[in-house]
Amino acid sequence: SLNIVTVTLNMERHHFLGISIVGQSNDRGDGGIYIGSIMKGGAVAADGRIEPGDMLLQVNDVNFENMSNDDAVRVLREIVSQTGPISLTVAKC
């Protein structure tokens, strides 16, 4: 069973999320979106629970499971540009 973790980040303390995301597209185009790298000083690094290779399932109320990489990057950028905490739900691989 997948270990699902939801992390809520206070964006007032850390001014950027600090992750890159990578799409693992397979033949069907539904390989999922994964955490690529984590930048020091960002909210994700400070929290420490999300790691490279984790699968990104949801951000706030947006489901990322069947999203293309381009869409995921765009949607994540829109969410980060808003104010307030950000909740990331990942599956630990």
Rank of each mutant, 00 (worst) to 15 (best):
T89M: 05
M67H: 10
G31N: 10
G23N: 15
V22Q: 14
N69P: 14
T83R: 07
S81W: 09
G84L: 08
I4Y: 05
S87M: 11
V75Q: 10
A72P: 05
N63K: 06
F64L: 04
S1I: 11
V59M: 13
K92H: 14
V22F: 11
T89W: 03
C93R: 14
S1E: 05
A91K: 15
V22K: 15
N69G: 12
D54M: 09
Q58F: 08
P85N: 15
N63S: 12
R77T: 04
F64I: 06
V22W: 13
L17Y: 01
A72G: 15
S81Q: 13
V62D: 13
M67L: 14
Q58W: 14
V75T: 08
L2G: 10
P85M: 06
V80Y: 08
S1N: 14
K92T: 03
P85D: 05
V90P: 00
R74Y: 07
A91F: 05
L9G: 00
N63T: 08
E65V: 04
L76V: 06
L88V: 15
T6M: 12
D30S: 07
Q58C: 13
L56P: 01
T8S: 10
G23T: 05
V59I: 10
V73R: 15
S25T: 15
G84T: 12
E12F: 07
R74G: 12
V75R: 08
G32P: 07
S1F: 07
G31F: 14
L17S: 00
I86V: 07
D70E: 13
I21V: 13
G32Q: 12
E78Y: 04
E12V: 09
F64S: 00
T89Y: 03
D71C: 15
E12P: 10
I79D: 12
M67P: 01
T8W: 03
N66D: 10
Q82F: 05
F64G: 02
E65D: 09
L57S: 03
D30E: 14
M11R: 09
N69W: 04
G18I: 01
F64Y: 08
S1P: 03
E12N: 12
A72D: 00
T83N: 10
T89K: 14
L57N: 01
M67D: 01
V5K: 13
T89V: 10
L57P: 00
G29S: 14
C93M: 12
T6R: 11
Q82Y: 14
L2T: 12
P85G: 10
L9Y: 12
M11H: 06
V7T: 10
L56C: 00
L9M: 10
S81N: 06
I79S: 10
D71Q: 09
T83Y: 05
I50N: 01
I4K: 13
L57E: 02
N66A: 09
L88H: 01
V22I: 13
V73D: 15
D61W: 01
G84C: 05
S20F: 01
R13L: 12
I33V: 09
L2H: 11
N63F: 08
